[in-house]
Design a protein around this nucleic acid. Structure first.
Lengths: 341, 341
DNA sequence: ACTGCTGACTAGCGCGCTCTAGTAGAGCGC
DNA sequence: GCGCTCTACTAGAGCGCGCTAGTCAGCAGT
């Protein structure tokens, strides 16, 4: 690796140094047959000496494809971090590379559209949106021009591939668990406009009704943030009487809630049970562990990549939008117990 | 926006539709003078109708520059999320775009080198490494071929631009604060190979010595993870006697520690004081707030971008590697108090 | 000697864009 | 009429690579 000040070396430089044609160097770098063993090695050595690295932009331009998937993320979301972690190997197995672009809710000019455009303009062939907040129309616009897959949030009516888990089932499992333990006074901490939260609170209501607890339905406004959990905890504490159980919108808000409760000396789960949602890896951090609804990040990521790749490599007419709904599974850990009598 | 199945439209398609030359379309899309007002509008309208979007790969190839900075991140690190959040606007102000690539410690094939290469091959002009774990030699190799800036971790001897905060000062402030409160039995939870942790534990030892507490120096092995904090907390609890204060390697491990302690009914800060490091936004989440050493993510990000851009746009010979050392500041919140007598 | 074939290598077009060097035509002063 | 400038636009050469369609030497078979 030699520092080569000035412009970066190109294939032509390598070719010239070895005394062969550019095409031969190209062959070598693409691992294609057609180059002699000895020449191949001389090319690689020369490239190394020059510090040559193939230029992806040019490579992309020349062959039609980039084999790169763009992923739009929201920073500060542990479950999305889990997804990203799972996306890389899933994409790699199918021969795709991954590029990330952040959507920053705080920064005006940096919404999902902008992030997706940045990715596309870098020749990503498809875009995977993690927990976006786009409307059906915006999704359609995106999906019309390109291959796009939405993860976690299903937007009814949007003609776009979507991967999510069956929120209703997950919530139902959690609620059944709580009711079975003997809880009746179960409050739901809403997830605001977070992915899946509309479905989750709908399912909460349905479950309460199903268990004959219609009169006890109570939904606290919230978000998928720790701040929201903290706020909800403080609200509950000021009320004097705690519910016996809380179903949080996701793990992050559950953790915020737990933080406040424990801090106030409330005994979890003896005095109050808390259930999270996602099984992002924060839920393993309590010594007792957070009871939560597990969304399989690996499976979600694999499905998302598969949808994108299918569409990219599919022959003929584009198939109609598909939806994969994965079954979540309640993971009972230490934050739930029968209510105190 | 019309769904245009088949290949995506190019400049030539737009030009043909309007009945002008490709060059004119190019002018319009670069907002350059030289096109009549009416033509300009016709071009834009045609482009919109075709769903044309300029192809960055080709654009990059054609003009020398991409004006894009690559950022190598580690997923699951709140402080890095803060940095990323600050990097976008900082880069944008200087007219640069940002692309992210993750380094996954878990996945073998996905180390910092690989992440950086992915970014470079997508024509990023420079790479900003957030809390990497590369050796001096690896950094040099990277810095030799390209513009690279390391954030948070200074590697002695590596000839590469570096932005970090003065760990020694930060730790010193935290230690002075604890000692002034009356603490003598102060344990340090090490950050393992996390960025800055070597300097932090060195500074811890120095501060203990400076306060005449050499005999009480105690460093618990750890990492910049919540798991490490949880582990340390459990260890301390099994020992029966808690220290009166803990200086954690970063906020994340401090939170893990706090979680366990509170869970065990330990009163923070009455029974034990805890100081974090970073002031990542998790530290605001406790109702009382985490006392921590604030690293200014915005300033760090701005400096990192500025270093990269200076090098990219600097004329003449490359300047010697620079280092920016920002002053951290202790932020006293609710997790520190005088020890119980 | 001719053909056929294989392995090693090359010429050169094209990917979609930028950018330099130009041209056509209008307007203007003399 | 002439040159001159200015605006609106165009021709065409790259940028670094991939890829198709070759060339050419060497060798076996008839």
């Amino acid at each position: 690796m030699k520092r080569n000040s000035g412009r970066r070396p190109t294939m032509a430089d390598v070719a010239e140094r070895v005394g062969v044609s550019r095409a031969l160097v190209s062959l070598v770098f693409r691992n294609q047959p057609g180059a002699g063993e000895e020449t191949r090695e001389r090319v690689l050595r020369a490239a190394d000496e020059l510090g040559y690295q193939p230029d992806t932009a040019a490579r992309l331009l020349a062959r039609g494809r980039s084999r790169t998937l763009g992923v739009v993320i929201t920073v500060h979301q542990p479950f999305q971090a889990d997804l990203v972690e799972a996306l890389y190997p899933a994409a790699e197995r199918l021969g795709y590379d991954v590029l990330l672009s952040a959507h920053l809710p705080g920064l005006p000019g940096r919404d999902e559209r902008r992030a997706a455009e940045a990715l596309l303009s870098h020749r990503c062939e498809g875009v995977i949106l993690l927990g976006h907040a786009l409307t059906a129309a915006q999704l359609e616009a995106l999906g019309g021009d390109t291959v796009a897959v939405a993860v976690s949030r299903s937007v009814p009516g949007a003609r776009i591939d979507c991967v999510r888990s069956a929120e209703g089932q997950g919530v139902r499992q959690a609620m059944d668990h709580l009711v079975q333990l003997g809880h009746r006074d179960i409050v739901h901490l809403d997830g605001g406009d977070g992915p899946g939260s509309a479905e989750r609170s709908r399912a909460y209501r349905a479950a309460m009704r199903a268990h004959g607890l219609t009169g006890r339905i109570r939904i606290l406004p919230g978000a998928h943030t720790r701040e929201a959990g903290v706020g909800a905890g403080e609200l509950l504490l000021t009320e004097g009487r705690l519910p016996t159980a809380v179903l949080a919108g996701n793990d992050t808000s559950a953790m915020g809630l737990l933080m406040v409760l424990m801090r106030a000396g409330v005994d979890v789960p003896a005095e109050i049970s808390v259930v999270g949602y996602d099984d992002s890896h924060v839920s393993h951090l309590l010594p007792v562990g957070l009871t939560t609804v597990r969304q399989d990040a690996v499976a979600l990521a694999e499905r998302a990549v598969r949808f994108a790749v299918d569409r990219l490599e599919g022959e003929g007419a584009a198939p109609p939008p598909r939806e994969a709904v994965l079954e979540p599974r309640l993971v009972v850990r230490g934050t739930t117990a029968p209510p105190r009598v």
